[in-house]
């Protein structure tokens, strides 16, 4: 279990697997504007990355995982891909 709703914040914790994509998507759809916190997240499965890429929620805190911080965070924070 690595997707948890904490007030207005969706916390991803530990390694995020393919089955985490669906709960993440429903949390984001339930209430637009929710923030996703990646600081305690490990490696993100591509399915999870894809949800973040498609819905572009605001991200909180620096990602805890070096790969996510180095390569994914700039893409997720930047403008939507053209």
């Amino acid at each position: 279990m690595s997707v948890r709703l904490d007030g207005p914040v969706i916390r991803l914790e530990g390694a995020c697997r393919v089955e985490d994509a669906e709960p993440l998507l429903s949390f984001l759809q339930e209430e637009p504007g929710r923030v996703v916190d990646l600081s305690a997240a490990g490696g993100l499965h591509a399915a999870v990355v894809q949800v973040l890429l498609a819905l572009r929620p605001p991200l909180a805190g620096p990602p805890g995982d070096p790969f996510t911080e180095r390569w994914l965070a700039p893409l997720l924070a930047g403008p939507p891909p053209g």
Partner: peptide
């Protein structure tokens, strides 16, 4: 990272 098809609206997205 890009998208093969334009990302659908949240509700229509298939996470799998």
């Amino acid at each position: 990272l890009g998208a093969r098809q334009p990302w659908p609206d949240g509700a229509a997205m298939d996470p799998f």
